[in-house]
Design a protein around this nucleic acid. Structure first.
Lengths: 120, 120
DNA sequence: TGCTTATATAGCAATATTACGATTAATCAG
DNA sequence: CTGATTAATCGTAATATTGCTATATAAGCA
């Protein structure tokens, strides 16, 4: 079916999943890394640097924009993109609260080593 | 085409993206949250708690297992799953190093507020 | 106005993902 | 051994994602 049953989950679960989904493509990670490295504002440099057709890059940019992670402003013929700092910190907070739960004090009840051996 | 061009990206970009992709589904987040909350080891409680058919749950479990996030050991008729603590901490580290880059000191060059207004 | 550049959108094809019902495999109780 | 229970796998259908080419849009320049 390919359609996720969002109604069955909590708002938080959907929020985390939606966020991770957007981050779940290397091209979008590459875009974000570049924006973070250049502090802000680039434009069609992505097309030069990433081995994807211009429309495909544009699509990924729109997806990041829809998720609120980046913003773009038109500057003459080109478009400047940058990280949305507020949202970026929010992402950090959301994921941190999820991930940090088990950072300390988790003891595995299963034999993880044996399990990993098994799956080879 | 639906096929991602992994060759075009760095190992790190692919690693982050692959990880986020696994986390990009609410059912898998729900599973992980439950495992984190119960510290470890449950089994078919997922089927009771999550509104998905048993084979679908099983699939999600296999995906989490393939990503190394959880481990499962057979205990009689049932299977006990638990977080792989080592891998979990690794996830934490990988995502932290990516996300924390812009947590401080990012100044938006674009007018984010105007941008968000625009997209309404 | 017409040409060039930069970006977005439309349309399409291929592959991936999600989810289901049916079936299989394996263990336990009797 | 038989039946019940638990979980994984198979086969299938629907939808989503990725990425391309072709086209549209919009701004700047001659």
């Amino acid at each position: 079916m390919g359609v996720t049953k969002h109604d069955s989950y909590t708002a938080e679960q959907n929020r985390i999943a939606a966020l991770c989904k957007v981050l779940g493509h290397p091209a979008r990670i590459a875009i974000l890394q570049k924006l973070l490295a250049t502090d802000c504002c680039i434009c069609r440099d992505f097309t030069d640097e990433i081995d994807l057709a211009q429309p495909t890059i544009s699509r990924h940019l729109q997806e990041l924009k829809a998720a609120g992670l980046i913003a773009g402003t038109i500057e003459g013929t080109s478009v400047s993109y940058c990280i949305n700092p507020e949202r970026w910190r929010e992402v950090w907070t959301v994921l941190q609260s999820f991930l940090s739960v088990g950072t300390e004090g988790i003891t595995s009840c299963c034999d993880v080593a044996a399990e990993q051996e098994q799956s080879k």
